[in-house]
Deep mutational scan, measured.
Amino acid sequence: QTIHNGDQTYHYDNPEEAIKVAQKLAKIYNLTVTVKGNTVQVH
């Protein structure tokens, strides 16, 4: 599972963990989380 947060990319073995982290980032920075296959984008 990969999270793209602007210019930063994070890799997680656990998809659920990746989505949790993405949602935390989204709340902190007031962003949107988009899940596309194995990629979670925060923008």
Rank of each mutant, 00 (worst) to 15 (best):
G37L: 04
D7A: 08
H43L: 06
D7S: 12
H43M: 07
N14H: 04
A18H: 01
T2R: 11
T2K: 12
N38H: 05
N5Y: 13
Y29G: 15
H43S: 07
E17T: 14
G6Q: 11
G37N: 04
N14R: 03
V42A: 01
Y29W: 07
T32F: 06
E17H: 06
N14I: 03
K36P: 01
N38A: 06
A26T: 08
V21Y: 06
V42E: 01
N38I: 04
T9F: 15
A18D: 00
Q23M: 09
D7H: 15
D7F: 14
H4S: 09
Q23T: 10
Q41T: 15
N14C: 10
K20M: 09
H43V: 07
Y29T: 15
H4T: 08
E16K: 06
D7E: 07
L25G: 00
A22R: 01
V33H: 00
Y12W: 03
V33D: 01
V40T: 01
T9D: 04
H11R: 06
Q23A: 13
D7N: 09
Q8C: 15
A26Y: 04
Y29M: 14
T34A: 03
Q41Y: 15
E16G: 06
G37Y: 02
K36A: 09
N30G: 15
N14V: 03
N30D: 12
H4F: 09
Q1P: 12
K20A: 11
A22S: 03
Q1D: 12
T9Y: 15
V33C: 03
I3R: 10
N5R: 13
Q8Y: 15
K20Y: 07
I28P: 00
N30E: 08
Y10Q: 03
Q8E: 11
H43C: 12
L25T: 00
P15A: 12
Q1S: 12
V21G: 07
V40W: 00
Y10P: 02
V35M: 02
A22H: 01
V40Q: 00
G6R: 12
A22F: 03
Q1W: 02
Y12L: 05
K24T: 10
H11E: 12
E16W: 10
I19S: 07
D13K: 12
E16H: 07
I19Y: 11
G6K: 11
T32C: 15
K24C: 15
K36Q: 13
N38M: 04
I3K: 11
N5H: 14
D13V: 06
K27P: 09
E17M: 13
N30P: 08
T32Q: 09
I19G: 04
V33G: 00
Y10V: 03
K24M: 15
E16Y: 09
V21D: 03
H4A: 08
A22V: 03
L25D: 01
Y12T: 03
E17N: 04
P15F: 08
K27L: 11
Y12M: 05
A18W: 04
Y10C: 14
D7P: 09
K36G: 03
Q41V: 15
Q23V: 10
Q1M: 10
A26M: 10
T9A: 05
N38C: 14
N14Q: 03
L25P: 01
A18P: 01
V35A: 02
Y10W: 08
Q8I: 15
L31K: 06
T34I: 08
H43A: 05
V35F: 01
K20H: 06
A18C: 08
I28M: 13
L31Q: 05
G37H: 03
Y29A: 15
P15N: 09
V40G: 00
Y29L: 15
T9K: 05
N30C: 11
T39G: 02
L25V: 01
Q23L: 09
H11D: 05
